[in-house]
Nucleic acid binder design. Structure first.
Lengths: 341, 341
DNA sequence: GTGAAAGCGCTAACAC
DNA sequence: GTGTTAGCGCTTTCAC
């Protein structure tokens, strides 16, 4: 298994540095950490020895001794390669990184069991804080960690059975605005294509959709709701199927950007396309003239970071909930009139 | 600083579990780790005590003691919120995650100094391996870590001054194909919009561009090369400026997907657009009928993971270099004829 | 200014 | 099967 000969020396320890410098362990420690009360001569000797040996302090040992939590912040998301979460993670990392924290990420594939296992591992690693875009139905399993002082922040989806800091989009209002916008342009058969049914953002957006329709006295919408379009391909197929059905919708509300992209693929080359509004802005929405419910994705990461850092810094404040507003951006696709009445 | 009263109990240790279970520390350790040679009665007692206390083993301590490297794999990229790297990271995480490793990520913002600092921190954490999409001009600073047995894998950009496993796209060939494709459609004034000049992928793609033009005896291309279009907005502006210049190109080769998107924004609403081929495929390329140089992004992560795992598993093989091929996908934009001769 | 000893939480080595 | 002892690499006493 391991190389038979030529065994590697192993990382140099502080003890070796101290020995080479001819000082005690503690003095070496002081010098390496730039503490005061070290004569500059000693300092030089030690630093020189450390450089010679290529000394690199072992953080595991340091953090263990200090009993302190590590400078790692654990983040658990459904899928890191989803650009939405990647951007949120990027923004969060940027904020906490400037305070000396690192982000350690784990993807669950939207599997609650995987989530629990990954969270457990992060906790075993004594992460300084936990950031979750959770897929679990209940978060009571986090109560112990919470009590023991590990800050927990929920992003995008709220905690269930647990009080914790949370950053959410205004999903329901955003969806409602989108559908009202379509209604105001004369639509009454409005399709909804949504993400996995158990995800809270989907449920909220569905609620907003129903809100708008109910407020306008429109019923029969049940025939126009589709769920579980979790990837672009599925969204494309579902959209195509909906447009091919007996009495197709005259407008479609796609409940996230992947679904919007899937729907655009499905509507490609259609001579007369239904109206379309998508939740989430995306990079080519302008070029494609797609109306959307826009919001500030980076802000979710930044607000999450702020909550984490506040907890880490401080007292036992109340849990906070930040809501990020949404707004309609009209670009053409959402303003198309119904094709038939 | 710390809460004045009501001090938290601190995480329970194995010693406390052992005490509660009425066994020795080592027995508790064995039970918790599911080792053999523990009577099932003892096992039960210990596990019960651990559950009572909400015991969670401390990985820092375990890994320190075992002297083994942690089960963390460090990955350093320019920007995690860049979908390309997010997808690569996602694919890599998926592969190593199934073997019990976690990914710890850090973004450098394409700053070589930041990169070196972040790498140093990961090494201090004794990561099991290092995966780099590096922005540094030299990687000699990694030689020590390399010698000491930390596997290092380079993704997307090759190491300089260091021999290490590497996964690269066939940038030069891909770019050359793209430009040849444009030439075969009659273009002779072909613009190149590229990323930051110091990034190796940019340089390779530029080389491929020059290869194709030189092979066809086309010169004067220097007037059609633009660099440092690192984000969508910059790419848009640069493209717009190029199209507005005295003798604009009849075709454009955009050297990565962000640049392609920026260029599409710039070309929006143009009655007669120049031909366009972009490096990297993107989600809406079909809808927008954009011809691209496509490749398998997930594969880069997967191959990287394979290299990491092979190193971790094994002997002292030769360093390996994996090249991921590119292919032209014609969708219309790259087949437009020149507007004037 | 400097150093010796103890110990963070755990596991390896060796008893019994 | 179980327990004892030592020690991973570092920092924290507390002494000098």
């Amino acid at each position: 298994m391991s190389p038979p000969i030529d065994d590697e020396p192993g990382a140099p320890t502080l003890a070796e540095v101290a020995k080479l410098a001819g000082v005690s362990l503690k003095t070496a420690s002081r010098a390496v950490n730039g503490e005061r009360y070290v004569s500059s001569a000693t300092m030089d000797k030690v630093l020189h020895a450390a450089a010679m040996l290529g000394f690199r302090p072992n953080r595991l040992a340091r953090e263990l001794r200090q009993g302190s939590r590590s400078s790692l912040i654990g983040m658990v998301v459904g899928d890191l390669s989803n650009p939405f979460y990647a951007r949120v993670a990027g923004a969060l990392e940027k904020e906490v990184g400037s305070r000396g924290f690192h982000l350690i990420t784990a993807s669950t594939g939207e599997d609650p069991e995987a989530e629990q296992r990954l969270v457990e591992e992060l906790l075993e690693r004594r992460v300084a804080a936990l950031v979750l875009v959770s897929t679990s139905r209940s978060h009571r399993y986090l109560a112990a960690a919470d009590l023991r002082g590990t800050p927990i922040v929920f992003l995008d989806r709220p905690p269930v059975g647990l009080l914790a800091d949370t950053v959410l989009l205004d999903n329901r209002a955003g969806a409602r605005m989108a559908v009202e916008h379509l209604i105001s342009h004369g639509h009454r058969q409005i399709g909804l294509i949504g993400d996995l049914a158990h995800i809270s953002t989907h449920q909220e957006r569905l609620r907003g959709y129903v809100d708008a329709l109910t407020a306008s006295g429109i019923d029969g919408w049940e025939a126009y709701v589709r769920e579980d379009a979790h990837d672009i391909r599925t969204a494309k197929n579902i959209t195509a199927a909906m447009l091919a059905q007996g009495r197709p919708p005259t407008a479609i509300f796609t409940a996230n950007s992947r679904i919007t992209i899937g729907a655009l693929n499905a509507m490609n080359r259609l001579h007369r396309a239904p109206a379309l509004i998508g939740f989430d802005d995306f990079e080519l929405s302008e070029v494609l003239e797609v109306s959307v419910v826009a919001h500030d994705m980076e802000r979710m990461g930044a607000e999450g970071a702020a909550l984490v850092l506040a907890r880490l810094a401080g007292g036992a404040e109340e849990t906070r909930r930040v809501t990020i507003p949404c707004r309609i951006v009209a670009r053409g696709s959402g303003e198309r009139e119904p094709r038939w009445r």
